[in-house]
């Protein structure tokens, strides 16, 4: 563990908590893409299958349980608890356009052709595109509430910090996970235009921000 990865995990946790608390306190999920949240729950489910089979550390196990619980809680709030505020007309991204290529690629490009490894690879590739329905929804509705922007900022920051972690681990312990690195770079690139807008607009207190 290094400070970059710890900061990344904390940023990820903050992002998930920001969204969950926003929905819970405003008792509404307007402007939130339920599809992206379902995809994130799927990412955690397919990635953390080794939760009971391999013990890495208490931190690792606790964080996996927390991420799984919070992501399913978010999906529950959107599709069950506050479903009448779910904006399905604007959450229309065709997730099959993400799932089909990701499934295909995880069968083609993986470290070993075993169910656990293919599911892990699937989760890595899926995570890099899981935010697309949310970004698409923001372009469609024309703007995002500032709290949603903070969510996206910390979510994008988490994988950017992981990239720094991978550089650090490569130079200190020769660790290199090609699939995770390539996918993580792609994922972070998707946030770049958002990062630019976030810094130039949201942090200047303009609250609402619209993606181009």
């Amino acid at each position: 563990m290094n400070i970059f990865r710890l900061a990344g995990d904390m940023s990820h946790l903050v992002a998930i908590l920001i969204l969950l608390l926003k929905i819970w306190r405003s008792r509404s999920c307007a402007g939130i893409s339920g599809k992206s949240q379902v995809l994130f729950a799927l990412v955690f489910t397919t990635r953390y299958l080794d939760l009971f089979t391999s013990f890495i550390s208490a931190y690792n196990t606790v964080m996996k349980v927390v991420f799984l619980a919070l992501s399913y809680a978010t999906v529950y709030l959107i599709y069950m608890r506050f479903r009448n505020s779910y904006d399905s007309e604007n959450d229309t991204f065709r997730v099959e356009f993400l799932l089909v290529p990701v499934i295909g690629l995880s069968f083609l490009e993986n470290y070993s052709f075993t169910p656990m490894e293919i599911l892990w690879t699937f989760s890595i590739f899926l995570e890099s595109v899981a935010i697309m329905p949310q970004l698409f929804m923001i372009t469609k509705t024309g703007e995002a509430e500032s709290i949603t922007n903070h969510y996206l900022f910390f979510l994008g920051l988490y994988r950017a910090l992981y990239i720094v972690n991978w550089v650090w681990r490569y130079h200190t312990e020769g660790f290199f996970d090609q699939i995770a690195v390539v996918s993580g770079v792609v994922q972070t690139i998707f946030y770049c235009d958002f990062f630019y807008l976030y810094v130039t607009r949201v942090l200047r207190g303009r609250g609402k921000m619209s993606l181009p």
Partner: peptide
Amino acid sequence: CHRSRTKDEL
């Protein structure tokens, strides 16, 4: 490509 070591990352 590289076989990834134990998955110690989240």
